[in-house]
Design a protein around this nucleic acid. Structure first.
Lengths: 204, 204
DNA sequence: CTAATTTCTGACCGTGCGGCCAGAAAACAG
DNA sequence: CTGTTTTCTGGCCGCACGGTCAGAAATTAG
C-alpha cells in the first residue's frame, strides 16, 4: 500500500515534470483562477487529454505541484542547514537558503502560495489537512527549542516565532513577483539580522 | 468623477453590507474556489439577480469585500495607535490592535487573504495593482524611519521590517481558522516582544 | 386611490470548465 | 516483420459558472 511497487516509465516521469512545470508557470503568471487544464496543456504543448492521462485529475495535479516544489526546496536547503552547527547559525542558514531558493525559483513559489491559499478541490473542503503546514513549522520549533535549552536563544514561544519566520519568508515570493528589482541577497541578510536580534538572549 | 454625488438609499446600503458579509463568510468557510455568486446569494437568502443588481459584477464584489474589511480594520486600529506616543509604543499598539481585530473578525480576514492572494479577475491580470499593498506597508515604513531617527530603533531596512511585520500578522488568520483554540491575546504579546527585540537598539 | 420608481425573482443565455473516450500514433517486445 | 502495450489526439459530454432580462412585487410619491 502507499506507493505501488511498479516504477514509472521514462516518458511518464518526463511528462509529469513537464506538466507540473507548465502548471506552475501558468499559475504564477495568470493566477490560479485562470489556470485551467486547457491552458496548462497548451503551455506544455500537449493536448488536454495528456494531463488527464498522467494525473488523476486537477486536484491531483495541484497537489503534485506543491509537493514537487516543497521537496525540491527541502533538498536544496537541508544540506546547507545541516552544515551549520549552532542553533543560531542553523537559523541563519535556514533563512539564507530559503530566500536563495525563492530567488532561484520565483515562479514555483508563487504558484505554491496561490494553490495552498486559494485552491479548493472539487468537492469542497481543502487540499491539505489542517496539520500539513505544521510539519513545516515543526523543524523551526525544534530548532528554537534546542537553542533555548543550550542558552543561545531567549525565552519566547517557539511556535509563534516559527510562524513569524514562515510569514516573513512567504511574503517574499509575491513581493518579488511585483518588484523583480529587489536584491534578495540583501533581503536575506536583513532577515538574518532581524531574527538574530529577535531570538538573541537579552544581554541584560 | 470619483464618487457620484447621489447618496445610496437605505435599502441599497443594507443590501450591500449584507451581501458583502455573505460573500466573506462563504469565502472563509468554503474557499474562494467555491464562492460562486449563486452560493453567496443563497447564503444571503436572496436571489442571484440581487447581487448583480447591487454590484457591477463579481470582480466589483470581491473588491468591495476587501475594501470593507480594510477600512473597518483601519477604523478600529487608528485611534489605538495614535494614542501611543513613542515609536516603540506605536509599534506595540499596531500589533496588539491588529491581532485584536483579527480575533474579532476571523472570517473577514481569512476572506480577504483568499481574495488578495487567490482571486483572478475576469479578463486575467490581478485585482489590485502592484502598488496597492505598498500603501499598507508605508505606514510601518514611516513609523520605523521615525524611530530610527530619534534613536529608539536600530539600523535596519524599514521596508524589510515592514513586510516581516505584515507577514507575521497575515499568517495568523489562516492559522486561527484551523486552530481556534489559540489564545490570540498571548500571541499578540509574543509578537510585541518579538518585534521589540528585533527593532531595539543594540545595548552595545 | 393611482402612478412612478425601486427592488427583486426565476428562468434563461453563452461560455468554459473538468473529465472522458474511441481510435490514431508511437514505442516496444518477440 | 507482427502483435502488444503505452502514449497521445481531438472531439464530445454534462455541468456550473457569471451575467442578463422581462416581468412581478414592493416601495414611494402625489
Amino acid at each position: 500500500m502507499g506507493q505501488p511497487a511498479e516504477e514509472l516509465s521514462f516518458i511518464e516521469r518526463a511528462r509529469r515534470t513537464q506538466i507540473i512545470g507548465a502548471a506552475a508557470a501558468t499559475i504564477a503568471e495568470d493566477g490560479i483562477g485562470q489556470a485551467s487544464l486547457a491552458r496548462i496543456a497548451k503551455r506544455a504543448g500537449v493536448s488536454k487529454g495528456v494531463v488527464s492521462y498522467h494525473f488523476a485529475g486537477k486536484d491531483d495535479l495541484m497537489k503534485q505541484v506543491v509537493l514537487a516544489v516543497y521537496e525540491a526546496g527541502a533538498a536544496a536547503m537541508t544540506p546547507v542547514i545541516q552544515a551549520a552547527t549552532t542553533p543560531r547559525d542553523r537559523l541563519a542558514a535556514y533563512l539564507r537558503s530559503n530566500v536563495a531558493y525563492i530567488a532561484a525559483n520565483p515562479e514555483a513559489l508563487q504558484a505554491v502560495i496561490e494553490i495552498v491559499s486559494g485552491y479548493s478541490p472539487e468537492g469542497g473542503g481543502r487540499l491539505f489537512a489542517p496539520g500539513d503546514d505544521e510539519v513545516i513549522a515543526d523543524f523551526l520549533v525544534g530548532l528554537f527549542r534546542e537553542g533555548q535549552q543550550d542558552g543561545s536563544f531567549r525565552d519566547f514561544d517557539p511556535l509563534v516565532m516559527a510562524h513569524t519566520v514562515r510569514g516573513a519568508i512567504d511574503v517574499i515570493a509575491p513581493r518579488h513577483a511585483r518588484h523583480p528589482e529587489i536584491d534578495l541577497e540583501a533581503y536575506a541578510e536583513e532577515l538574518v539580522a532581524l531574527f538574530d536580534a529577535a531570538t538573541r538572549r537579552e544581554s541584560s
